[in-house]
């Protein structure tokens, strides 16, 4: 009923499904500061897109949706432009190294399986770290600690940084640089470059945009507050999305009609997602992020099982888990936004 013809890809596709996929990835992109390519590309592929069109169409959508979301995060003071610029430059170097390694491995044999295992390890490793951090540094516990500390000494508590970030800040290798927007007084430029080169390397090696790697790296390694990490990461996503959109279109890999309809959903979703950051505290965002990548990891695990067993059920299950996760996390973000907004309105009244 809602099928439209997509002349470039040469298929018919449900327009509502395109808008729905776009909306979900927009909400998650605006809320977590990620591009969401790891949701859209497999989703489009499952529903009949050739992989080449899926990647290019997704990148075009990422570019369009991140314009509005970046603007909104800028308005909220969530973008550290200095840190973001450094991240773009260092990530390109790392990305090039990662993709070179892939080319070398491809010469040696099947690289797909190695990449998937690394992907799996990274997804589950990151989610475990974030779950551990959430339960260790539960905001309620922090509140209690701060209360008792304030009662005893009256001193104001500084921002809560991970041990990794604290160790990184102790590296005293000049030149030292400060990031006032992120509340970082002094950190070695080399350490920052190394972190972004590493995240770039991983995204080049895994063939992903890298938003889901950069955001936790900003929080846990550099010690940036969660909302600033989201905004700053979106800035990098915007830059890589613009480049990806143009080059993939040049290669004829963008289905413009599909990207158009997806963008209608995703740009609305991205505004809602970015607005939700105002109402949900950093630890809540990190918890949801950890849940999201844990489920994404499950989906990749199912895909890997399919590759080993060749039982088609696992491939379908992988896609359904991914789509299901995207849809329900979108619902959670929207519900949380509405609840917190109503609560704030009540307090104001």
């Amino acid at each position: 009923m809602f099928d439209i013809r997509l002349p470039i890809a040469g298929i018919e596709f449900n327009v509502l499904l395109l808008i729905l996929i776009g909306f979900c990835v927009g909400v998650l992109g605006g809320f977590f500061g990620v591009g969401g390519g790891w949701i859209v590309t497999p989703a489009l592929n499952i529903f009949g897109f050739h992989m080449a069109y899926a990647i290019g169409t997704d990148l075009s959508n990422i570019f369009g949706q991140s314009i509005g979301a970046t603007k909104k995060h800028h308005k909220m003071g969530n973008i550290d432009w200095k840190l973001g610029s450094i991240s773009i430059v260092a990530s390109i170097v790392g990305l090039e190294l990662g993709s070179q390694l892939i080319i070398e491995l491809e010469k040696a044999g099947d690289v797909g399986s190695i990449v998937r295992w690394c992907y799996l390890f990274l997804m589950f490793g990151l989610s475990t770290l974030m779950f551990y951090d959430y339960f260790r540094m539960n905001p309620k516990k922090i509140g209690r600690k701060q209360d008792s500390s304030n009662n005893s000494s009256g001193a104001e508590q500084g921002p809560t940084r991970s041990k990794l970030a604290q160790s990184l800040h102790k590296i005293n290798l000049p030149p030292m640089i400060s990031f006032p927007t992120s509340g970082i007084q002094s950190v070695s430029l080399w350490a920052v470059l190394l972190v972004f080169a590493l995240t770039g390397f991983l995204s080049g090696f895994l063939g992903v945009g890298g938003g889901f790697i950069r955001m936790p790296a900003l929080v846990y390694l550099i010690g940036v507050p969660t909302s600033i990490a989201i905004g700053t990461d979106l800035m990098s996503v915007l830059a890589s999305g613009a480049y990806g959109c143009f080059t993939y279109a040049m290669k004829g890999r963008v289905e413009i009609f599909a990207a158009f309809f997806m963008l209608i959903g995703s740009s609305i979703g991205a505004q809602i997602g970015a607005t939700a950051v105002k109402y949900i505290k950093g630890y809540g965002i990190r918890l949801l992020f950890a849940i999201m990548i844990a489920f994404a990891g499950c989906s990749i695990a199912l895909e890997q099982v399919y590759k080993i067993t060749s039982v088609p059920f696992y491939q379908s299950a992988a896609g359904l888990v991914l789509m299901g996760t995207a849809v329900c996390l979108t619902l959670i973000v929207i519900v949380k936004l509405v609840v917190e907004f109503k609560r704030e309105k009540k307090i104001r009244a």
Partner: peptide, 27 residues
């Protein structure tokens, strides 16, 4: 293909900005 790439990029930028502006007004 170059013109196609330019059109795709411009359409995405314009639609993204426009839709974001409209959604912002509604919000």
């Amino acid at each position: 293909r170059v013109l196609y790439a330019v059109v795709v990029t411009l359409v995405m930028a314009t639609l993204g900005t426009g839709m974001a502006f409209l959604t912002d007004l509604v919000l």
